[in-house]
Write a protein that binds this DNA or RNA. Sequence first.
DNA 1: CGAAAATTTGACATGACTCAACTGGAGTGG
DNA 2: CCACTCCAGTTGAGTCATGTCAAATTTTCG
Lengths: 190, 190
Amino acid sequence: MIQSLIDHISKYVPLQPGDAELLQQHILLQQVAKKKKICRPGNALIENYFVIEGCLRLYNRDDDNKERTIQFAMENWWMFNPGSIDPDTNSGFYIDAIEDTRLLVLTRESWDLLGARLPALEKYFRIIFQRAYNASLWRINNIFCHSGTERYHNFVRCYPAFVQRIPQYMLASFLGLTPEFISMIRAKKV
Amino acid sequence: MIQSLIDHISKYVPLQPGDAELLQQHILLQQVAKKKKICRPGNALIENYFVIEGCLRLYNRDDDNKERTIQFAMENWWMFNPGSIDPDTNSGFYIDAIEDTRLLVLTRESWDLLGARLPALEKYFRIIFQRAYNASLWRINNIFCHSGTERYHNFVRCYPAFVQRIPQYMLASFLGLTPEFISMIRAKKV
DNA sequence: CGAAAATTTGACATGACTCAACTGGAGTGG
DNA sequence: CCACTCCAGTTGAGTCATGTCAAATTTTCG
């Protein structure tokens, strides 16, 4: 239901009557099965996703071809694909579904169109990106100020519900650790 | 000169005649001497800074009271203060000048006022924050995919000019390393 | 010129990784 | 519905990248 998104937007900016319909016309509901990828590096098309139900993850692969999870998105979170650093290379990220997921798709074209017709939406996304940026600065701070063991315990304390839903090995790479090491932490040997 | 900012904005969104004057009325030019702090944790007032000339850094202190540099801003970069996670605590960041710096100050009030009168500005900041957020995701990716030695060499390769301007110990904490270790890398012992 | 700050050097310590083997559970096909 | 496979998680031994601490040296700046 697009209503979750309308509610989310309304928390940050006022919407006019008719805006909801406009949004509805340009945003697609999509169903993604667990483990299915919805985009991969080099994808020319940049889309953004709003999770209605389920869970997405953003990741890529290091030199050793191991997956590195960069971000999760659960219900009522946006997942933005940062795309490539260098448009010429095939650099970029994968996004896949950790669970069966229902999401809203905002394509680049719809984005441009909606932004032009609905100035409040620019403000909404300005706020969303500002918060996301702030959060990522805090996250970087957290990475450098705390040991792996501390980061794991903090995560468990702050997001106990997530820990249930996310496989250990994904959480490990999200925290910059190995699955083996998390295993050790949980066994209280650290 | 506010002209640098006007030029920067114009790269992303079209400005109307008169907009420049409006901006000028609500944005302050400020001079900050090297090593002077312009804000610190718990500062109620949130301002944002556009660097005309010089260099700013955003940092805070870890449990051991050591400085951890989170971000730099050079000419034509915005420095945004992420503020506190929890408004009740005194958590938050310091910003100071690495060099004598001339900057433009955009206060919270001016921001609100300008955003309302100048919709193009919301779009401009949406784009700026989006890019900043994307960059920070790449940075997190970089932290986890590469060793400290690699991160140092990459930084030197990508931003040789910055390395001249930034003291080693600040670069060290920006890269999540100790000054001693960078010293060792430079001595080619690693 | 002198004091304080930044950088370097080296000895030593350790958090987290690697690799390999083992265990358990979930999905799948016959 | 069982047996098999495969993937996730665990355990342990050994290793290494990077940190810590302390002292020496160089640079900065009043």
